[in-house]
Amino acid sequence: MNIFRLAGDMSHVFSILVLLLRLRVAKNAQGISVRTHELFLIVFLTRYLDLFTTFYSLYNSIMKILYIVSTASIIYTIKFQEPIKSTYDKSQDSFLYWQFAVAPCAVLASVTHLIGSGISGFSFIELLWTFSIYLESIAILPQLIVLQRYREVENLTGNYIFFMGAYRFLYILNWIYRANFEAHYQHHWVVYICGVLQTLLYVDFFYYYFKSKKSGGRFTLPT
């Protein structure tokens, strides 16, 4: 554990809390993509199956459970809790996630897992873990698309997406730190590539986020 990794994890937790708070304070789901969180729930459920097989640390287990429970809670709040439920506009959140996210990531994960491990080293848990890495890298896409449609970004919504992006950016710093200071550190290229891709998807958002913070004005995206 290093400071970047811890800051990344905390940033992730913080973003989820900010979103839950935002839903409860504003009592609406305008500009929020439930599909992004459904993708994240799939990511966490497929990645954290090792909760049942391996114990790493109390910190590790608690965070995994926290991510799963809080993400499920976001989905539940938006889809089932009134009055928020009736403010959620399904037609704006229409990203075809099975076709464009889940299926391609499943194919890609199967190919890389077979190349990396071979038939003899095949492990279903490892395969799902690899799948989750791919899926996470693009899980924010539905949210970015919804944002683009609403264009005006509410303060807390902007903050939640910012901390979501900061999380993966801090993980990149964590990998750089580990590669330099850890003995026997192994490079993991699939994780690096997906982590960088995930961070790059936020670059445009970061740009307008900081611009609006600097000017103190309203946060709007260009057409």
């Binding site: 090792d50 790493y56 590790n60 995994k64 890389t112 080293g121 490892e126 993980y171 993991h188 994780v191």
Partner: peptide, 10 residues
């Protein structure tokens, strides 16, 4: 043994 990554990371 994990092939692609450190499973201790979240």
């Amino acid at each position: 043994n994990p092939v692609f990554g450190d499973h201790d990371e979240l």
